[in-house]
Amino acid sequence: MRKNIVVITGGPGFGKSSLIEALSVKGFQVGGEAAREIIGEQMETGGETLPWKNRRAFQQAVSQRRIDFWESVDGVDWAFVDRGIPDQLAFASFRGFEPSAILKSLASEYQYFPVVFICPPWNEIYVQDEVRTESFDEACRIHEMICKTYNDLGYRLVDVPLCSLEERCAFILSELKLSSGINQ
């Protein structure tokens, strides 16, 4: 089943989370970046569900959080999410792992809106931190893998222009033929 959940994706640090937050302020239901949320939670509590400690448990936790968000969205409502299940396929491939059959099945079962917005590489805003440890070049390679994965799954990719946050939001909403926001 496909839902009106619009994925905003791209390499790490290219402006996805800022867009998701701006869309939330406009009144849309949004899902955050599950992997980053889990890493933050686990680091805060001293947990073991981290990609460098227990990769399998981490992948399962990320998948479950993405499924929970997908299932929380009504079939007719519009929602936006910072990365989708296909991103996990791309990250597994980037890290040199064959994505599991379960993960491939989840990417097939949980369908998003057919248009995916891609935040392209943007060196001027890229910042590393304790969770985003990839170099800009690595982030660009991850970006390429993400684009390939979504293309291979039949999604239509639309690059988000490199401009102000408000202009990027307006671009996405215009492409989807949605009003400027639920609360406006």
Results as ranks from 00 to 15, higher is better:
178 L>V: 14
157 L>R: 07
148 K>G: 01
159 D>L: 00
147 C>S: 10
178 L>A: 15
159 D>C: 00
177 K>I: 08
166 E>P: 00
152 D>K: 09
145 M>I: 00
168 R>D: 06
148 K>V: 09
173 L>S: 13
163 C>E: 13
151 N>T: 14
158 V>S: 11
172 I>M: 03
177 K>D: 08
164 S>P: 05
160 V>Q: 12
171 F>R: 05
174 S>Q: 11
178 L>E: 12
178 L>Q: 14
166 E>W: 00
159 D>R: 00
160 V>S: 14
175 E>G: 10
150 Y>S: 10
173 L>P: 06
149 T>I: 11
156 R>Y: 10
171 F>S: 03
147 C>E: 15
145 M>N: 00
158 V>G: 07
164 S>E: 08
158 V>Y: 05
143 H>D: 10
170 A>Q: 05
178 L>P: 07
176 L>V: 01
158 V>N: 07
159 D>H: 03
168 R>L: 04
156 R>N: 13
165 L>E: 09
169 C>V: 15
166 E>C: 01
162 L>K: 09
178 L>N: 14
170 A>K: 05
151 N>H: 14
158 V>W: 05
167 E>N: 13
163 C>N: 12
151 N>I: 11
171 F>L: 02
158 V>T: 14
148 K>A: 15
152 D>T: 11
175 E>N: 09
166 E>D: 10
173 L>Q: 05
158 V>F: 08
163 C>T: 15
162 L>N: 04
151 N>Q: 14
160 V>Y: 10
147 C>M: 13
171 F>G: 02
172 I>S: 01
169 C>D: 05
161 P>V: 06
143 H>T: 01
165 L>S: 08
175 E>R: 12
167 E>W: 03
174 S>R: 11
170 A>L: 00
169 C>S: 08
161 P>C: 06
150 Y>P: 02
145 M>T: 00
154 G>R: 11
173 L>G: 06
163 C>H: 08
174 S>F: 00
148 K>D: 12
174 S>T: 09
176 L>T: 01
169 C>H: 02
167 E>R: 11
173 L>E: 04
155 Y>S: 13
160 V>M: 13
172 I>G: 07
145 M>P: 00
177 K>S: 14
175 E>L: 08
162 L>S: 01
149 T>P: 04
149 T>V: 13
146 I>G: 02
147 C>Q: 13
166 E>M: 04
153 L>C: 10
163 C>F: 04
167 E>H: 11
161 P>D: 08
169 C>N: 05
175 E>P: 11
143 H>P: 05
160 V>F: 12
172 I>H: 04
156 R>E: 13
162 L>I: 07
160 V>I: 15
162 L>C: 03
165 L>H: 06
170 A>G: 00
173 L>K: 04
155 Y>D: 12
144 E>L: 06
160 V>E: 14
159 D>Q: 01
161 P>F: 06
157 L>D: 15
162 L>W: 00
170 A>N: 05
163 C>D: 15
155 Y>I: 15
150 Y>L: 13
171 F>W: 04
161 P>H: 09
174 S>M: 04
167 E>Y: 05
159 D>F: 01
153 L>S: 08
169 C>K: 10
152 D>C: 09
145 M>L: 02
160 V>C: 14
177 K>Q: 13
148 K>F: 15
